[in-house]
Design a protein around this nucleic acid. Structure first.
Lengths: 352, 352
DNA sequence: CTGAAAGCGCTTACAG
DNA sequence: CTGAAAGCGCTTACAG
């Protein structure tokens, strides 16, 4: 069972290799009748182009830049570790992944970093996009220059980015809200909310989702005003401590953003964690341990490895102008209880 | 920034292309000192072999057989649809995926189908393995003949299969058990359990997991004896009807296997669905609708598209003797509430 | 609008 | 133990 090659099609259609290539790749300058002949022959022979031969012949390189926040955030560290790890894996497939740390709270510098990129240096960009207007402008400019941009983890839907690699944060918030409502008894109670900043799109989306579900389906629960802790563990610990003191009837906590470690520590110190339903985001060593010890009741998460692989595949597809497999690029809203934690997988190998 | 090629390494090491190839691919017949020279040169130049060139030059074909149950089971239908869809996608990468329907309840015929396969016809097998000893023997025989086998969805851990593509069903059962316990009030109550058959490994694993959690953490809940409905909607509906009649205090149902449609219909007909926490497996049009209408409270699921892609990647890696990316091949235990349902994605395109 | 020929970077016999 | 050369199945200028 030999493979059907472009030679076979050329022969069957009575044309040259170059013409078959033009037709198969939709290149211009072929007569309609010729196109039809080639199409027919390809169909009859059930021809599928060999991706290896094609990849070798067009000596294209793909240079992708990944802009990922640094700083002491376990999830972002995972994300950038995955990116660096896949840079190694992918280089044999002619894809060069460059990871550039950014400061997600400094919109001007992020925009500046984006502004330095253009087609001569870069074939695609994935960016964890903070919600500043100057960031949006920079994304739009890159797109206009012909560099495809995807947003990663935090979206900028008003921009012209081609695709968002991340979870539906409204749905994630709804999920947290329902788990909170169902885990608590059907009785009036007060819920504390912490976010990094409602200026971050993913945080505000989660809040909106949670609120929607609680107000509609669990009206006996009272959501306190969201306190913003900038994803900082110390600040979050402080906030939790204060809220516990102010609200002796506090029955639940939802940490919308990062810095769960601070919330966990404060709860444990209070001695009240057994009476409080507590939900956070992202699977890290700290949230994992808190689930195991029943301090956290559920963790809503997204898989950084999947997100990096997806971003790479999507950027390549955009460069090539080919479609993606939708289902493969949908990032799941993972729900972790203490019962379905994945085995601690080894961190991806990094050289050096 | 030209790519570093095997030529560059050969020149730097002062050897021929063939020798570099031998070293890079660990082929025998090279002097230690030569190996070292080549290693050095490759390292210094930061050489990564081009997968396209390699793929083209070794004109290997991969013929994979997927043995998937047919019959009226929405999940298995999805699984086999995904397999047929990826057969098209992958054929350009020299992988031929052949889908063979099997009868999961007929161990002898499954074993017979496996017995027909050998290296001359097939380079790898993925099988939804029913727990019959003759199936295990057939798997072991295939492996012994040098055909790598992976189990899909339902494992046969005692066999020599190289890998299991599926979820940890004990953990899935634990998750169902905890959701049941937490969604119900902390009061004595009775839970009904339905399985397809406890002879199916995935079903018995889920039962064990659920039982473990309920007995330890929710001892006020009483689990009824598991009723087996053979994953049949009509039988399951009957079972649910009977259990509802026999147990007026029934507060929960866990359908461990397929045929959720029958359970859903019987619950709705009884008019008691509002008072009963109900958990099932797999996301199908029926379970999705039941979640939306609050008949089902949670669905534990696995992603058939991911499982097919994973099986293909793993089989290829086994053929090539290269490692896999662990994180990419871990199949998640998806937890769906009405709040985090994925958009209805179009079914994968199939030709014809 | 179409074709002949070189070349992409590996692997594979074959020869020594 | 090592090397020279052909070939894998496409794409890419270039010529007509």
């Amino acid at each position: 069972m030999r493979r059907v090659t472009i030679h076979d099609v050329a022969e069957a259609a009575g044309v040259s290799l170059a013409t078959v290539d033009r037709v198969m790749n939709g290149r211009p300058g072929v007569r309609k009748t010729t196109i039809e002949k080639v199409r027919q022959a390809a169909e009859t022979l059930n021809y599928t182009p060999d991706v290896f031969a094609a990849g070798l012949a067009k000596k294209r390189l793909y240079r992708f830049h990944f802009l990922i926040p640094d700083g002491p955030n376990a999830f972002m560290e995972d994300l950038s570790r995955e990116a660096r790890s896949h840079a190694v894996t992918m280089s044999g497939a002619r894809m060069h992944v460059h990871v550039e740390p950014i400061d997600a709270f400094d919109g001007h510098r992020v925009a500046g970093t984006l502004a330095m990129l253009d087609r001569s240096a870069c074939d695609g960009v994935a960016v964890v996009a903070p919600a500043f207007p100057e960031v949006r402008a920079a994304i739009d400019r890159l797109q206009a220059r012909g560099v495809p941009v995807v947003t990663l983890v935090s979206d900028h839907p008003a921009s012209t980015r081609q695709h968002f690699v991340g979870i539906d944060n409204i749905a994630a918030g709804r999920t947290a809200g329902r788990l909170m409502g169902r885990f608590l008894p059907k009785a009036p109670a007060t819920i504390g909310l912490i976010a990094g900043s409602l200026g971050l799109r993913d945080h505000s989306d989660r809040y909106a989702g949670c609120r929607e579900v609680v107000e509609r389906d669990f009206p006996h629960l009272k959501l306190l005003k969201v306190r913003e802790g900038r994803d900082d563990n110390a600040r979050n610990a402080d906030l939790v401590k204060k809220m516990l003191a102010e609200h002796p009837d506090l029955a639940g906590f939802y940490n919308i953003g990062a810095g769960s470690r601070g919330m966990i520590a404060a709860l444990q110190a209070s001695g009240r964690s057994g009476d409080i339903v507590c939900i956070g985001h992202e699977l890290t060593p700290h949230t994992r341990e808190a689930l195991m010890s029943d301090v956290l009741d559920a963790v809503i998460a997204q898989d950084p490895g999947h997100e990096i692989r997806s971003a790479i595949r999507v950027l390549k597809a955009l460069c090539d102008g080919v479609p993606i497999i939708e289902g493969q690029e949908r990032i799941r809203i993972d729900v972790f209880l203490k019962d379905n934690l994945p085995d601690i997988s080894e961190l991806p190998d990094l050289p050096g």
